[in-house]
Amino acid sequence: MNPSASADATTSALVSRPEHSVDSPLAVHAMTVAYHRKPVLWDVDYDATAASLTAIVGPNGAGKSTFVKACLGLVPRATGTVEFWGQPFRAVRDRVGYMPQRESVDWDFPVSALDVVCMGRYRKVGWFRRVSRAHRMAAMSALERVGMADYASRQISQLSGGQQQRVFLARALTQEAELYFMDEPFAGVDASTERAILEVLREIRDSGRTVICVHHDLLTVAEYFDRVILLNMRVVAAGATSETLTDDNLHRTYGGRLTLLSEASEQLARSGQRQP
C-alpha cells in the first residue's frame, strides 16, 4: 500500500472530524440505533485506543450490547458511520473478532467444544470448503490456551458455564483478529475462569491488539481494564479508567436515568405505537 496516497484519501474523508485517526482500530461517529422507533443509542461518538483493554459500562438497557452489534452491522444503524482503521467493516472482517453473549446460543446443539472453536476459522476456511487438519490444529491450540484441551471432544451441553465461556473465548482467539468485541466475557463464570479469561485478554492487549468488552461488574472495572466507556444511550464519558471512573461520571451514567432524552424517547415510542 502506498502510504502517501492512502493518507491523502483519508485526510479528505476526515476533514469534517479531525478527532478521528486512521490508526484508530474503531472510530464511531454520530451513531444512532433504534429498535421499533425507540432510540437505544443516540448520537454516539467514540474513538478506540489501539492496544488497550476497554470496558463498556452502563446500566441495564443502556445499549451496551447494541453498541457492539451496531459496530459489527448485526443490527442496523439509523445514522452514523463506523470505521475500522479507516475502513468499513466489510473490508476488515478478517481483522475483527466477536464473542457474543453466552446465552445467545443453544448449548444443547449437537457439536463438540472443538467444533465450536473451529467455527472461529470458518472465514479463513472459506465457503463450501471443509475444515482442514491445519485449521483443527489451530483450534486445538486455542483450546489449550484457555485450559480446555481435555474437553475438546465433549458435547457442549456437558460443559459448565465457565467452561462454555472459555470455549467461546477460544473461538474468538482462533479468529486471530486485531480488534475483539466481547459481550460480557466474565458473566456467570467461576473465580478461576475469571482469572484465566483476564490473563488471555491481557496477553492479547500486550501483543498490541485491542479488546473492547461489555462489562457488568463495576467493582472490577478499574482493576481489569485500562480504558472505559461509560454508556447510557449516549457516551457519558470515555477515556483512561483512572480518570474516567469518577463518582460524578458514574452518577451521571447510572443515577440520572430520567434525563430529558430518555423522557423524549419514551414519548416517541408511545406515539410510534399509536400511529403504526
Binding site: Y98, P100, D106, F109, M119, Y122, W127, F128, R130
Partner: peptide
C-alpha cells in the same frame, strides 16, 4: 454436503456467522 458448515453455524450462532460474513 457443500454448505454443511455454513448451515451449521447459521443454525448454532447466527450472530457470529453474520460477523464472519456468512
Amino acid at each position: 454436503v457443500t454448505l454443511f458448515k455454513e448451515l451449521g453455524i447459521a443454525a448454532f450462532d447466527a450472530q457470529s456467522a453474520a460477523a464472519q460474513g456468512i
